[in-house]
Write a protein that binds this DNA or RNA. Sequence first.
DNA 1: CGACACTTTGAAGACGATCAACGCCGGTGG
DNA 2: CCACCGGCGTTGATCGTCTTCAAAGTGTCG
Lengths: 256, 256
Amino acid sequence: MIVLPEMVNKLTLFSGIPEADKKTMLEAGHIRNIRRGHTLFLHGEPVAYFYIVIGGTIQLFRVNQGGDEKTISLIEPGQTICEDEILNASGAHRLNAKAVEDTVLIQFASSWLRDNARKYTSLAFNLLNLMADHSHEFEVEAEQQATMSAAQLVACFLQKLCVLHKLDPRGYKLPYSKTLIASRLGMELETFSRALTKLRQHGITIKGSRVSINNPSLLRQYVCNSCSITDECPAYKAIHGICVCDWQGLPKGKRD
Amino acid sequence: MIVLPEMVNKLTLFSGIPEADKKTMLEAGHIRNIRRGHTLFLHGEPVAYFYIVIGGTIQLFRVNQGGDEKTISLIEPGQTICEDEILNASGAHRLNAKAVEDTVLIQFASSWLRDNARKYTSLAFNLLNLMADHSHEFEVEAEQQATMSAAQLVACFLQKLCVLHKLDPRGYKLPYSKTLIASRLGMELETFSRALTKLRQHGITIKGSRVSINNPSLLRQYVCNSCSITDECPAYKAIHGICVCDWQGLPKGKRD
DNA sequence: CGACACTTTGAAGACGATCAACGCCGGTGG
DNA sequence: CCACCGGCGTTGATCGTCTTCAAAGTGTCG
């Protein structure tokens, strides 16, 4: 018998399902360990499993013609992988996945997800919720990529890191390599590095992998100015706790 | 009593639901006409309805600080609006929507969607499918935006237009203004215009709103070279019929 | 201590955005 | 019928930002 970590039981994905049923459901899962740098699956392979990350980090990425990786997202403990690919008709992985560090996950046959979503309305609903949130995050990110400068993107990333990982903004360590972060932000390593330099003038200092955000105005809750209706942007706040969409510490199009 | 267009009955969204039940469900809808240029809803307003477009086109867009619009997507007959916002917890619109041309849609109270998804497993499943597809399309688009040059994006757009609207590539009329297309592709009108000029050298001619694609190699079914596994990219083909991800007629980084 | 991965810095070039001017066209009003 | 206007698209010039290539610097782990 497998002892599932307590956190899996508490996932909102399984909320609304009777405890007994949940227990049975989760017993179908198998623990899997992926060594740092090893591959979980590749683009084009058939979609066989649904995964829940328990420890470590999984990188989802594409490889373009030139051979370099573009990171789509980084999956952390408590998050899931492949729900969309399973629920989609295509049947093949659309991304590559590998472990950034030694990673532990639980895997379920993909039919497990489909069958249980059919059986438990709550699960189907939680999945709908999850996917709606994802696609919203994606929209926001796409807009930011298009609108903001490299330095702004980096600043937002560092801020979000604090909020989501509950780090102390006064001084924390980057959880990933700079190369990985640059790839995650869709920029070249050199651009990322130069962005860090610029941020020093705005109260964000980075030495090695040690970050500290000293500009107090970067730490309070933001109110979104870019909304067309009111001064507040509840949608953003609901998801991120902060409203990063209007971080304007670095006006665009201005020389240093 | 409202006479619903036949097409609504055939939507895959409602597949698997008994005809009688479907009929009752759909009778809850109200026809709504939106005049060209008029607004359907604004960012920040509460999410009140689920919409199915029957005729015309709805533009979903954001307005950024500078005041100009960034088009997120163009919704055509047979497509739906707001399913994600309804299934998401936030409760407020995250986008603006207006009619590009005179548009007809059916609207349902947002609770209608939630309740019926709870009642009919098939509907919940079809929604999951739909959203999984959307998020995939989004991923592809985000990648293309990041990878391809303006000219490549335009070429792909024109190609897709042929496929999705079943137009004759030898000569067809742009269904939208160039300003709108440019906004949809995330570029300035000037950039779009210059891209059209470049495409002439590659067998795509545009005069006014008349397009013709003369380069035969741009018309056959594409096989994806950028996949890491095989020569074929079933995921792309499944969705688009063509694999636009490897359109390389215009090598990047080369001067004209 | 040396090897190697990772990061920084510099210089040059490509690309798209922006600003400005102009051309084209359809509509309106005198 | 003509003059004027506004919406829309094109073209040119300039400028900022990011990428690319190249080389040097830093850190870590055997």
